Simulated assay, not measured.
Amino acid sequence: MQHLSYQPLLLNGNKYLQQKWDKASYEMHLRKVKSAKPTIDTTAPKTYGHLALKIKKQKFEEQREIQRENNMLLEKISHIMRTAGRIDNRNDYEKKSLCREMQQQELLRITKDNQLILLRLTQCQPHYSIKDWHEDWLKTIKLMESIARYPRRVSD
Rank of each mutant, 00 (worst) to 15 (best):
Q115F: 04
R152I: 13
D41R: 11
H127C: 01
I66H: 07
H3S: 12
Q58Y: 05
K76A: 10
N12F: 03
R153P: 04
T47C: 05
Y128I: 14
N71H: 05
L4E: 13
M72R: 12
Q103R: 15
R100D: 15
K131E: 13
I66A: 12
K23P: 01
I130S: 04
V154N: 10
T122A: 07
D156F: 09
A24E: 10
W137K: 08
L121V: 01
K139H: 06
E106V: 10
L53Q: 14
V33C: 03
K34E: 09
P38H: 02
L118W: 08
T122L: 11
K37N: 07
D132C: 01
L9A: 06
Q19M: 15
G85Q: 03
R153K: 11
L143M: 10
Q104A: 15
E145G: 04
S35K: 10
N114M: 14
S78G: 05
Q67P: 00
K15Y: 00
W137Y: 08
D22P: 00
R86S: 14
I80T: 03
M81C: 02
Q115T: 08
T47D: 04
L74Y: 01
N12G: 06
L108C: 11
L11K: 03
L10Q: 08
L53P: 04
T122N: 08
E65S: 12
Q125I: 06
N89L: 13
R152G: 07
N91F: 09
T140E: 04
I117H: 01
C124M: 08
K32M: 07
K59V: 11
F60S: 12
A24T: 10
T43W: 07
R68C: 02
A44Y: 11
A44L: 15
E75G: 00
Q18M: 06
E135M: 05
E106I: 14
Q18G: 01
G49V: 11
I141E: 10
L108F: 12
R153Y: 05
Y93S: 15
R90Q: 02
K95W: 14
Q58I: 14
L9D: 04
N114Q: 14
E62A: 14
T83Y: 04
R82E: 05
M28A: 15
D92M: 02
Q63H: 02
Y93V: 14
L30K: 04
V33A: 10
T140G: 00
Q63N: 09
I130Q: 05
W133N: 09
N12Y: 03
